[in-house]
């Protein structure tokens, strides 16, 4: 019996108007599908990644009405009338969003799999709090796992993007150096 119920559900298609990245879309999908599945499979927006499908890793984070949400736990049918933003909607015209630019320049994306989710969380943070402290950034990211980078470049990327968005062009994040070499921008000493 259970199996028949499931396959019946599979055929229970619904058509909904979803507003994704500022554009309205009419999308048909099975009623039980998560927002993650609908974005990826019906709308080909594969920038939002699968990590655990249990709401534990943050990889699938998108914004709904500006708030970070785990799209694997959100039913797509409940998203009608709400504004959904994914990593594909982050660029500003043809330019990278300051967060994208900072992440790319600093190496905040290593394997890159957690990156879209982290960018979404960071975007929501900066929209609410243009000058977060390090503690505020760290706690905003507490639900996004990264296995590669060591987090620092992500934190610095957020600091840098926040500075750019505030119009502070002088802010410079710390950069890598080879031991014994002068830091970039430092003149070698004459000695």
């Amino acid at each position: 019996m259970e199996q028949q119920d499931h396959s019946a559900m599979e055929h229970q298609q619904v058509f909904k108007k979803l507003s994704v990245n500022g554009e309205p879309h009419s999308v048909g999908f099975s009623v039980h599908h998560s927002l993650l599945e609908v974005l990826r499979e019906q709308m080909q927006l594969t920038g939002t990644k699968h990590g655990c499908e249990l709401g534990e890793c943050g990889t699938c984070t998108v914004l709904i009405d500006g708030q970070p949400v785990l799209s694997c736990l959100e039913l797509a049918v409940e998203c009608e009338g709400r504004e959904i933003t994914t990593v594909e909607g982050m660029m500003i015209g043809n330019d990278l969003h300051p967060l994208q630019e900072a992440f790319a320049d600093l190496g905040a994306a290593q394997c890159g799999y957690c990156t879209p989710g982290i960018l979404m969380t960071a975007k929501a943070l900066l929209e609410e709090n243009p000058a977060p402290t390090r503690d505020e950034v760290v706690s905003a990211l507490a639900g996004n796992l990264c296995r590669c980078t060591g987090y620092h470049k992500i934190l610095e990327g957020i600091d840098w993007a926040a500075a750019k968005m505030r119009g502070d062009e002088d802010f410079r994040p710390p950069r890598e150096a080879i031991y014994g070499d002068p830091l970039p921008g430092e003149e070698p000493s004459d000695a």
């Binding site: 927006l45 594969t46 920038g47 939002t48 994914t86 990593v87 594909e88 982050m90 660029m91 990278l96 967060l99 994208q100 992440f103 790319a104 320049d105 190496g107 994306a109 890159g112 990156t115 879209p116 960018l119």
Partner: peptide
């Protein structure tokens, strides 16, 4: 490949 990774 950083831009590809940050744009999805």
């Amino acid at each position: 490949d950083a831009v590809a990774k940050v744009t999805g």
